[in-house]
Write a protein that binds this DNA or RNA. Structure first.
Length: 867
RNA sequence: GCCGGGGUGGCGGAACUGGUAGACGCGCCGGACUCAAAAUCCGGUUCUGGCAACAGAGUGCGGGUUCGAUUCCCGCCCCCGGCACCA
């Protein structure tokens, strides 16, 4: 073990040796020790090729929290696995002709090695990959259970269709309304798909957000908005021989409804179009463009009169029925009653097509309704109804109730709760995913694959070429006898959304070796996850689906928890400076920060930047998320090779608190490197004078010694709070640095002083160990200890060391700091006030004034209010 | 468009419950060591004025509450994330 006791800090030699020691001791096994369990989980990576800074940051946060808990005596599960199905593997296959399976598995091998070189306390014996049949067979098995329970069902859904490639496109593959490969205008198309009834759980998913007090408020708010509960009414409008059902949150404004609008896909629209070619053309027009909510919300509002009229259920009046592209088939009933006077979208539409606007809510005193310009007060819900027949004079709330009651009497409507949340469509028309275990038979229809025939194994040798799912051309996969009647039948070729894979992987880590069941009794031992860490970009979809899926498994009797993740930390993005040059056509070439040198003025401000290679200037393009398109990615591996894992870990934890975005800086990394070397040298110099065996005698310390000891114990208290409660690792590291600076200034004179220095180092090395595990492990040995620093326990605060003789109080005059005074802690108000007035600079400011009031905050501040 | 978050020195950030704005680190300036450079060590560093003591200004912009506001309230501006088939 000479590598571990070398006199100079050589992480390239030291770190592998330390990891070998951990490996031999099997220090990272989740079932090591007998403490209380702690499940610390990061969102598993998509194996894109190599580790990027975002991964590095995510897993470092997770490892710091895991190692802190290990040192506190907990039995920690920190697993790792691979979200291995998905679109990028198909894109890579198209680019290189390599089957997605091969590409994915090679990436996993490479990234596993990278993760291991970072020294994370991961239990690798529990690794999983979602593309392995022993994982995804349970997707299939559970899907069949859901089908039986009626949670999974089939209906049509809208997808992006590329008419040239004859294939379905992901939203990501639609650029400015065109297919990414063909450039063809994308169309909407309706195809049959499998859905899960997440809406059955909408209320529960919403209600239990309140109990998730370990989650950031903003994530809970985003989920609540996404679920989008609204109370309103469904109202039936008669239209020729049929009924148009609408959902509205504002039945109180029913008397102001002047027209109706239905979605282009609404059955009534389709029927009206049969006899009206102009309408049919308009509906086709509406089918252009993408399906994403952002596309629909930003497109221009378009509409066309169907020529039909509907009967107002209360007045009997005939109002026109329009087709409008801002009405969505997927929400509510796919039809609305339009009240342009009090709804902004309806207002805009009515103005454009010159439809009547009828005000039915009074405006605040002094404000007049202007039907040429929208004002947000028009949508207020706290007004009084006007021009509303029998309801005139009622408040909106009373009008709501009265109108709903009358509709109910007439059988034309009732109160209803509507969720914005839609059922989860899990079918994907792609190859590289988990096959949906269904067999299509001409006679028997869609037949579930019998349980004993699972898994339906995805053939791994196919290469997608962009023209649709290659499974559709794979006869060996397609052809299968019908499980019911035995006649030749065909397999379903759609695969599952990868969000299915990631909705329960955290359960599988607890029992990855079980080939007889999806989960087992070990699952209950670890669940729920104590701490989950991942990107804010997953705040809604992944986290909502995982919460839903956990409930599905609960209702199947497979797990006992409602909520999978007790605490959640959403880490910020990793950013870096960008640099570019522009050619005469305005095209930009981006240069990696590593090839650029910045030039500064005498104050340190950046004045210009040049590319090192040619010495020519480049333009700084601001700080952006690390991305291929801006060529500002920094490779963590290169930095680990150069500085060692501990330095890179330290910088990524020090540069920003975990929830905020982190701006990468090479100079900052060097600063972290310098700190670690100072730390190493400090311990080295201390240890070189011989190991201290004498017990520290606090009584013998002089003022300097007592001050250092107070600093040390303040630091222990601060770091413990930052790691355990606040999760602000940056301030914890700053506190350790501050304490090291204080220790460096201390000059030990007696043997007893050296015992104090020994106390400081043994505490500091442990305090920083979760962040810099290799270095701390080695220094722990230098300090004369046996065994791993991670078995050494967390340093304890000695309360008696925190006592102070005096405290400094700030003295303000009219809120401005004018001086400072020293006083014994807990001094009486009158004494402090007297000292404050006597302070020379303070006295100067109050000399010719009358004192009106004096505010004293004990041991902190005095504010003298004088005029 | 809708929902969510953010804006503090030259830079990353700190200030936790309304109580010293700028901890810690980077950068920069000066010094020590060196033939020299790198590395290292020591000192300084919000801006303006001043030799200094100190004074004035200052947390995106405009208002408000308060003895006191980066922190709370109202109105704006700018940047970022998500929007259901990227993961």
């Amino acid at each position: 073990m000479t590598e571990m006791t070398s006199e100079t800090y050589h992480p390239a030699v030291l770190e592998p040796a330390i990891r070998e020691f951990w490996e031999t001791e099997r220090l990272h096994r989740a079932d090591r020790g007998d403490g209380e369990t702690y499940y610390c989980l990061s969102m598993f990576p998509y194996p894109s090729g190599k580790l990027h800074m975002g991964h590095m940051r995510n897993y470092t946060i997770c490892d710091v929290m895991s190692r802190y808990q290990i040192m506190r005596g907990r039995r920690v599960l920190q697993p790792m696995g691979w979200d291995a199905f998905g679109l990028p593997a198909e894109n890579a296959a198209m680019a290189n002709g390599v089957p997605p399976a091969e590409w994915t598995r090679a990436n996993i091998r490479h990234m596993r090695g990278q993760l291991q070189s970072l020294g994370f306390a991961i239990d690798w014996e529990r690794e999983i990959a979602t593309c392995n049949p022993d994982y995804y067979r349970w997707n299939q098995w559970f899907f069949l259970q859901l089908l039986e329970r009626g949670i999974a069902y089939q209906k049509t859904g809208t997808v992006n269709w590329d008419p040239v490639d004859q294939t379905v496109l992901a939203n990501e593959q639609v650029l400015d309304g065109r297919g990414w490969r063909t450039g063809a205008l994308v169309e909407k198309r309706e195809i049959p798909m499998y859905y899960l009834r997440i809406t059955d759980y909408a209320q529960e998913l919403l209600d239990s957000l309140d109990q998730l007090d370990g989650w950031p408020d903003r994530v809970r708010a985003m989920q609540a908005n996404w679920i989008g509960r609204s109370e309103g009414a469904e109202i039936a409008f008669a239209c020729t021989d049929q009924v148009i059902k609408v959902f509205t949150t504002r039945p109180d404004t029913l008397m102001g409804a002047t027209f109706m609008a239905v979605a282009a896909e609404h059955p009534l629209a389709c029927r009206a179009a049969e006899s009206n070619p102009e309408l049919a053309a308009f509906i086709r027009e509406c089918q252009k463009g993408g399906v994403s909510e952002a596309d629909i919300a930003t497109q221009e509002k378009l509409g066309m009169d169907t020529g039909l009229t509907a009967t107002h259920p209360l007045t009997g009046e005939q109002i026109p029925v329009w087709i409008a592209n801002y009405v969505l088939m997927g929400y509510g009933e796919g039809a609305i009653m339009a009240v342009p006077a009090h709804d902004e979208r309806d207002f805009e539409f009515a103005r454009k097509y010159d439809l009547p606007i009828r005000q039915v809510i009074a405006l605040p005193e002094g404000q007049a309704y202007d039907d040429r310009r929208w004002h947000e007060s028009y949508a207020a819900k706290d007004g009084t109804l006007v021009d509303s027949g029998p309801y005139t004079g009622l408040s909106c709330a009373d009008g709501f109730a009265a109108i709903v009651a009358d509709l109910e009497k007439k059988g034309a409507g009732k109160a209803r709760v509507q969720f914005r949340l839609r059922d989860w469509g899990i079918s994907r028309q792609r190859y590289w995913g988990c096959p949906i275990p269904i067999i299509h038979c001409q006679d028997c229809g869609a037949v579930p694959v019998p349980e004993e025939d699972l898994p339906v194994v995805l053939p791994e040798d196919l290469v997608p070429d962009g023209a649709g799912n290659p499974l559709k051309r794979c006869e060996a996969f397609l052809n299968v006898p019908c499980p019911k009647c035995g006649k030749p039948a065909r397999r379903e070729t759609d695969t599952m959304d990868t969000f299915v894979d990631s909705s329960w992987y955290f359960l599988r880590y607890t029992c990855p070796d079980n080939d007889r069941a999806m989960v087992d009794e070990r699952t209950a031992e670890w669940m729920p996850v104590d701490q989950y860490i991942g990107g804010i970009e997953h705040a809604i979809l992944h986290l909502l689906y995982a919460r839903f899926w956990t409930r599905l498994m609960r209702d199947q009797g497979l797990v006992s928890v409602d909520e999978p993740f007790a605490r959640l930390l959403t880490q910020g993005m990793v950013l870096a400076e960008t640099f570019y040059r522009e050619d005469e056509n305005g095209r930009r070439t981006w240069f990696n920060p590593a090839e650029v040198e910045v030039q500064r003025d005498a104050k340190g401000g950046v004045v210009s930047a040049v590319r090192v290679e040619d010495g020519q200037p480049v333009i700084p393009g601001g700080v952006e998320k690390m991305a291929k398109s801006k060529n500002n990615g920094v490779d963590p591996q290169a930095l680990v090779d150069q500085y060692g894992a501990d330095t890179v870990r330290l910088f990524s934890m020090f540069a920003a608190p975990p929830e905020q975005s982190l701006e990468w800086s090479e100079a900052g990394v060097e600063g972290s490197w310098r700190f670690l070397r100072r730390l190493w040298n400090g311990v080295q110099r201390h240890a070189a004078q011989g190991v201290v065996t004498d017990v520290l005698e606090v009584r013998k310390l002089d003022d300097n010694g007592l001050a250092l000891r107070r600093l040390l114990h303040e630091t222990i208290a601060k770091v413990t709070d930052d790691f355990g409660r606040r999760l602000t690792f940056n301030t914890a590291i700053a506190a350790v640095m501050e304490c090291c600076n204080g220790l460096a200034r201390f000059e030990p004179s007696a043997t007893n002083d050296r015992a104090l220095v020994q106390e400081c180092w043994t505490a500091l090395v442990r305090l920083i160990a979760p962040v810099t595990p290799h270095l701390s492990e080695a220094l722990w040995r230098k300090l004369g200890a046996d065994g791993s620093v991670f078995d050494a326990g967390w340093p304890a605060v000695d309360e008696s060391a925190l006592a102070r003789q005096t405290v400094t109080l700030v003295v303000q005059v009219n809120g401005k700091v004018r001086g400072r005074i020293e006083a014994a802690p807990g001094s009486e108000q009158e004494l402090v006030e007297g000292l404050a007035r006597a302070e020379p600079n303070v006295a100067r400011f109050i000399a010719d004034k009358t004192i009106r009031k004096v505010i004293v905050v004990p041991d902190k501040l005095v504010n003298i209010v004088a005029a």
